[in-house]
Design a protein around this nucleic acid. Structure first.
Lengths: 136, 136
DNA sequence: TTTCTAATAATAATGATTACGATTTACCTT
DNA sequence: AAGGTAAATCGTAATCATTATTATTAGAAA
């Protein structure tokens, strides 16, 4: 996902182009890591001292619902990052030191097949945590 | 994990036997589901009106660190349940309606083998969410 | 430009979790 | 059994992330 694609999606869904939205998206474009609402606010308040939590959270929710950002929970806090470009479903290794991620091309649900016949599966979570080669 | 085993572990690690601890453990023994701190407090304040959050959270942290309880994050809240008896590593299907769980005997890490050679893997999370046969 | 509505700012409220000083309790020793 | 001591608990306040509220601002269409 890049800035242009993100704006196309936003415009298609009737969202207006604002400078705050643009800066939030630019921050995610320039960072591979998962970021928290606080991370964003800290950076953005340099350029926009009046930026508020409400604006951050509202836009994060919008972006996630439109598939522009993806979200995960790390040590009790919500973290966000740009939706991966990958055209196929995948999972992530997350480095607990630098926060960088690596795509895992395998999905465990493929192996499960008919292991849960009577169950209605809504979604799933598979993440691996540790240290990347650079941090090891 | 049952009450007797839990108390053996606690005693071995120098923890004292208290009625509050016992009731917390009894509640988990009688419930298959994941419970929140609030769930516990609501039930326990019937018997111990003075039970405080501090006591609940402190003991939950103790129990998790000793492997008596296991913990997961569901919709932004920490949830706890008795550690499974299973002698081998496994994962869970969690019903989003009734909260009951079902053990998944497969671990995706087995399939990954040497897929992340240069990475140091600390831990992983794999959970499936949906509706169980009864709730469907 | 004017107007309409979405978006934002500033701040307060909420909900979960943690912290703290005072008190009580388990349990070890005598 | 009584007393001492550190652990455990209570009551409450503080903290942290997130959400809600209300007034104001700013896209963008006419």
């Amino acid at each position: 996902m890049n800035l242009t694609n993100a704006w196309t999606i936003l415009k298609d869904n009737g969202y207006k182009e604002t400078s705050k939205r643009n800066q939030i998206l630019e921050l995610f474009s320039n960072d591979e890591r998962y970021l928290t609402a606080r991370d964003l606010l800290d950076v953005m308040q340099k350029d926009y001292p009046s930026m508020s939590y409400d604006t951050v959270y509202r836009n994060l929710a919008t972006f996630v619902s439109l598939g522009i950002l993806e979200e995960t929970e790390l040590s009790g806090e919500r973290h966000f990052r740009m939706q991966c470009e990958s055209d196929h479903h995948h999972h992530h290794f997350i480095c607990m030191d630098c926060g960088k991620i690596k795509e895992i091309p395998v999905c465990p649900m493929d192996m499960l097949g008919a292991a849960l016949p009577a169950y209605e599966i809504a979604n799933h979570k598979f993440e691996i945590y540790g240290k990347c080669p650079e941090c090891k």
